[in-house]
Simulated assay, not measured.
Amino acid sequence: MAGTGSVTMPGTGSALPGSSEPGVTPIPWLNGQDGRLPGLKGTTTAVSHLTGLMGPNDTVPRFSVLGTDLGIMWDNGNGQVLAAFGDTFGFNRNPLCGLVGDWRSNILFRSSDRNLGNGMSIDSAPLDRPHHARELIESRKVNGVEVTTIPTAGIAVGGVQYLDFMSVRSWGAPGEWHTNFSALASSVDNGETWTVHPLTARLNEPLSGNTNFQMGAFIEHDGWVYRFGTPSGRNGAAHLARVRPESLLDPIAYEYWDGIAAWTPSDPKAAGVVIPGPVSELSVAYNEHLGGFVALYTDATNSIVARTSAALESGWSAPTVLVDSRDVPSVYGAFIHPWSSGENLYYLASTWSDYNVMLLHTDIDAARLPKPVTPVRPPA
């Protein structure tokens, strides 16, 4: 996902639509970068590039992916992790149009790699022609109408893959954008093709009062699918809804946590704050080592932070910084790998410096993430 505006990239004659950073290009040395991983020290390390020219997955010749971001991951229920990415670029096929182009609003990779200590290998991607990752959910690519469609969350239920995405109408100031709606798409062929469900779009329009669920994070727990939601942009708080898995595509079936003590059916305006903002590009997972839930996101300083809780509705700890923006000024997004285990927390993050995605690792014990404490709720 890019940020705001369309910026011409130096030395290319091309633009990276949506970029909020002047001169952003997925070719590191054109940004004055050497393309190396950030030299993090301490509890978090950069394991490997996932995408781009400097990555071991050869995403340029295999998939025509020179630059991309995000990487929302979920277990497909059949031995693979699926990862959905935002605005994606390759080399222009026509050099007269500049070096970088081939814009797709979103793509998907599949991985069966469980040995994450040396990186995350990519098995395959949905293609629309040889060596070219396809756009999963089409966008009109017209600023002020629909400039792009960005994945924000994914989950597998009953062998079906579900992708939560937002239709971005226009980019605003850095870290701000305006959406037409959020919606669900589903796939019955492991992400190869997707069907968008119009009812979920119509009832998830900001004008309908559903402003707090324009971006999402899924987690299945205790017979429910929980959906965290944040407003458009990077400055809002997180809210919480839940639905029975069989009713995932029925917006009327959702219940919304009031932030205090009760679930309210069918009314997203009733959702109270669960994690105070700014919460940017949230992901949530259960961690057996901690015996509770972990939430990762980018905070007001553009640092990657973690919170823990024994319950999804409340009791979230104070944030612990995992990647300080002073060490990696251009970092954003933090999406938990669902096969993280023990004290090893793996997640994907993006950087503006080369507009690509890397795998990070945090030692939970060394980072001293708080042990989740069951919150005391007021009587009903």
Rank of each mutant, 00 (worst) to 15 (best):
A241V: 10
V279Y: 04
P276F: 00
G291V: 14
E205I: 12
N212P: 00
A261Y: 05
L282W: 05
Y297N: 10
A217C: 02
G223V: 09
G315Q: 08
S303V: 11
E205W: 11
W224G: 05
A253M: 01
S309T: 07
W263V: 01
D222C: 00
Y254N: 06
R242I: 05
G291F: 07
T301D: 12
L240F: 03
G291P: 09
D299H: 06
L207W: 01
P278K: 13
N204Y: 05
G223I: 06
G233F: 10
A285L: 03
T298M: 06
W224R: 09
E192Y: 14
V243P: 15
H221C: 02
P276G: 00
S283R: 01
E255Y: 10
L248I: 15
S283I: 06
I252W: 05
H197D: 06
P276C: 00
R307Y: 08
P265C: 05
G236Q: 14
F218N: 09
P268I: 15
V243F: 00
F218K: 04
T298K: 12
G277D: 03
Y297D: 08
A285S: 14
I219M: 08
I260E: 15
Y256F: 15
N235V: 06
V225A: 04
D258C: 04
H197P: 12
V305H: 08
L199A: 07
A238D: 01
P231W: 02
E313K: 05
N235F: 15
P231S: 10
H289T: 02
P231A: 08
